[in-house]
Design a protein around this nucleic acid. Structure first.
Lengths: 340, 340
DNA sequence: CTGTTAGCGCCTTCAA
DNA sequence: TTGAAGGCGCTAACAG
């Protein structure tokens, strides 16, 4: 009686809100046989399997993942991704890497943007945890990782992307920021430059600190000075980079070469150099589209953000499926110079 | 007895796998009071509310969303987003728009990338539906929308972004591709150009067809010809656009101006023009970063992809929360010319 | 204001 | 190979 009500008697309409009971009733079998068939359990006769599949097809039935994961305890294939700025091509490529890995493993990606706001980051992780997702890849908004550590301790693994763990032992994927900046600087030194300026990033973030260290280390190794007047690391945007470079170039003793700490700073420097028709040499961290269209040569330290994402997803996958406790791992993404 | 087992007696350890029963036991109350407190139901005494909140805090308890949505039938704030290429800044900005709207409404975003593969698009929608999410914003990979219509018919609303519905009545957000191309072309005509080439997109996609129509309509209105030799719409990438433009410019009677159908085509055209040091005028659809750094003036038809995303999310939100059936709606995103 | 009962859709366990 | 019973964590509906 009830069953015929639920299936709507002969009214066969595709509807995603039908249940296994409906499918079972339509096929004249028990819900368990439907469940087994849909899980690919071999302990179902070919005949019944056929009946089930047809009923599923006719009714447009889709198994309810919420109920599934509730009963089985496990999450069913959702990984979280928290980035600081999705509109930045760097992070969207990283997101693509995570998505590609996830897709290959039958997982979906739940994405959140923090706009570098730590509270929002905490909020997102809280929410992710309440959805019992498998784990999350996080590009941290700050070097405060306490909530990330806590989240992992409560059973939801966290992998850091682009920053090393602080006071915690989380898996992480890092870029060789030091090596890249070191190589960029060495190229200028090898070309004979002695008076080199550096347009850096805020050094309270690991990336900024490492790139600065790469620069100063290379300079020191060549016996060159890095006076404070030639190093800046409070540059928020392209316009500021342009202005700072302008001031450098307008000095009595301007630098003959400039290292951009990221592509925004490099672009700002390029504008200032071009504006003055100076022949200052320019190199910079991060590749960018159309770098080859500029009207002078440029060397950039490039790496693949998509690889960063897929590596992070891979570490996360390993940790989610590990059987025994495992120590934190770190993967380093190589950086190579590209000459335009 | 069982309860004291579950709470681990006096062993109070933060653990996201604790349940309302555990919280209730710790607070000496019933699970219902915990549930009511956590939902913000006013029918809880201040005293008990306090007890509950403290127990939650001590136990590190987090409500299980899967169980919640299973019981209440409704999904709890997940919207899907399907794009064709997340690495394209255009779509990542669109994604940001969706994310921002979702965040303001307490929702999360489940993202999927199709790489313009229709099967993958179908697969993603199947999966989304089985997770009973609220609905999805889709940038369609083709003009086959049957599965999208079916998905909406089965109770999961779909909003199209960047393409109008085909043989279906879905909500959609469109860009004024016709108007933008029309204006771009008119600017060249007003500047005295009579021999204008168009580097278009595949016309089986709505955007490609509309931009071509904008071009030909403007030309026709000025009494100008648009011979097939001056119109191309099989250009897959920048290199091809460069080659095609090169062939145009090397003719006996080359165009004096070119309209790029998107930023890739515009960039390819720019390279060919620059290579030949030609003074061909250039305009194009889509803004792009560093367009101002090119060594000649350029006009682009620009619009805000983030707005496209947030508008789509808004339409979806309305449809998810509508009470009575509502006709399909379309929002048009304005396009404006920017001169570099 | 608080608690009891029942069941969302599925899957684990056990019995046939 | 199949089915019946029971419960995952939560909350609607109904008592008190």
């Amino acid at each position: 009686m009830e069953i015929s009500d639920r299936t709507g008697a002969s009214i066969v309409q595709a509807n995603s809100s039908s249940t296994m009971r409906d499918v079972a009733a339509y096929a004249g079998l028990s819900p368990m046989t439907v469940s087994r068939t849909l899980r690919g359990d071999p302990a179902v006769s070919a005949e019944n399997r056929q009946k089930v599949l047809e009923a599923v097809s006719v009714l447009g039935y889709r198994r309810n993942e919420a109920a599934r994961s509730l009963r089985s305890g496990r999450s069913h294939g959702i990984v979280g991704l928290v980035v600081t700025n999705l509109a930045n091509p760097f992070y969207s490529q990283l997101a693509l890497g995570v998505e590609q890995f996830a897709a290959q493993h039958g997982q979906q990606v739940l994405i959140g943007n923090t706009a570098e706001n730590l509270d929002r980051e905490r909020e997102l992780l809280e929410d992710f945890a309440s959805r019992r997702i498998d784990g999350a890849v996080v590009v941290p908004a700050s070097d405060d990782h306490r909530h990330l550590r806590a989240t992992q301790a409560q059973g939801m693994p966290v992998v850091l992307a682009g920053a090393p763990p602080r006071r915690s032992s989380l898996d992480s994927v890092l870029v060789d920021d030091f090596g890249g900046a070191h190589e960029l600087t060495n190229q200028l030194i090898d070309a004979g430059h002695r008076h080199i300026a550096f347009l850096g990033l805020p050094t309270h973030l690991w990336t900024g600190a490492e790139r600065l260290r790469g620069f100063t280390t290379a300079m020191a190794a060549a016996g060159l000075d890095t006076p404070g007047a030639m190093v800046d690391h409070h540059i928020p945007d392209i316009a500021t980079a342009q202005q700072v470079t302008g001031e450098l170039l307008d000095r009595k003793n301007p630098p003959t070469a400039i290292v951009g700490g990221n592509n925004r700073n490099t672009m700002g420097a390029y504008r200032a150099i071009r504006q003055r028709a100076a022949d200052t040499a320019l190199v910079g961290f991060d590749d960018f589209e159309f770098a080859d269209l500029l009207d002078r040569s440029l060397t950039v330290a490039a790496y693949d953000p998509t690889e960063l994402g897929s590596s992070a997803a891979s570490l996360l996958h390993d940790r989610v499926h590990m059987t025994a406790p495992r120590r934190a791992r770190t993967i380093s993404i190589p950086v190579q110079l590209k000459h335009y």
